[in-house]
Amino acid sequence: FEIPDDVPLPAGWEMAKTSSGQRYFLNHIDQTTTWQDPRKAMLSQM
């Protein structure tokens, strides 16, 4: 499912887009990137 862009990312995360428009996520805390939206895990725990 798609999460609306107005749902905030967890602390330390940033959303970016590739030149082709694909979204990816940067974790500044552990210096990693992922295609997986970290908000999905956050919302599934609620």
Score class of each variant (00 low, 15 high):
1 F>A: 13
1 F>L: 08
2 E>A: 05
2 E>C: 10
2 E>D: 14
2 E>R: 08
2 E>L: 10
3 I>D: 06
3 I>L: 02
3 I>G: 00
3 I>K: 03
4 P>T: 15
5 D>A: 12
6 D>V: 07
6 D>N: 14
7 V>L: 09
7 V>G: 09
7 V>E: 06
8 P>M: 04
8 P>G: 09
8 P>L: 06
8 P>K: 06
9 L>C: 10
9 L>I: 07
9 L>T: 07
9 L>N: 01
9 L>R: 02
10 P>F: 13
10 P>M: 00
10 P>Y: 00
11 A>K: 14
12 G>R: 04
12 G>S: 06
12 G>E: 05
13 W>E: 04
13 W>P: 03
13 W>R: 03
13 W>Q: 05
14 E>V: 04
15 M>R: 04
15 M>V: 13
15 M>H: 09
15 M>T: 05
16 A>Q: 10
17 K>R: 12
18 T>Q: 04
18 T>I: 01
18 T>R: 02
18 T>F: 04
19 S>N: 11
19 S>D: 05
19 S>M: 12
20 S>W: 07
20 S>V: 10
21 G>A: 06
21 G>Q: 08
21 G>C: 04
21 G>I: 03
22 Q>P: 05
23 R>Q: 14
23 R>F: 05
23 R>D: 07
24 Y>C: 05
24 Y>E: 03
24 Y>V: 06
25 F>G: 02
26 L>F: 04
26 L>N: 07
27 N>L: 00
27 N>F: 00
27 N>P: 00
28 H>V: 09
28 H>P: 05
28 H>I: 03
29 I>E: 13
29 I>T: 12
29 I>K: 13
31 Q>K: 15
31 Q>Y: 09
31 Q>S: 10
31 Q>N: 08
31 Q>F: 03
32 T>Q: 05
33 T>V: 07
33 T>G: 03
33 T>I: 03
34 T>H: 06
34 T>P: 01
34 T>I: 00
35 W>H: 09
35 W>I: 01
35 W>L: 05
36 Q>D: 10
36 Q>W: 10
36 Q>V: 10
36 Q>P: 00
39 R>S: 00
39 R>L: 00
39 R>V: 03
40 K>R: 10
40 K>H: 08
40 K>L: 11
40 K>M: 06
40 K>T: 10
40 K>N: 13
41 A>H: 13
41 A>F: 14
41 A>Q: 14
41 A>S: 13
41 A>C: 07
42 M>E: 15
42 M>L: 14
42 M>D: 06
43 L>E: 14
44 S>R: 12
44 S>W: 08
44 S>L: 11
45 Q>F: 09
45 Q>C: 09
45 Q>N: 13
46 M>R: 12
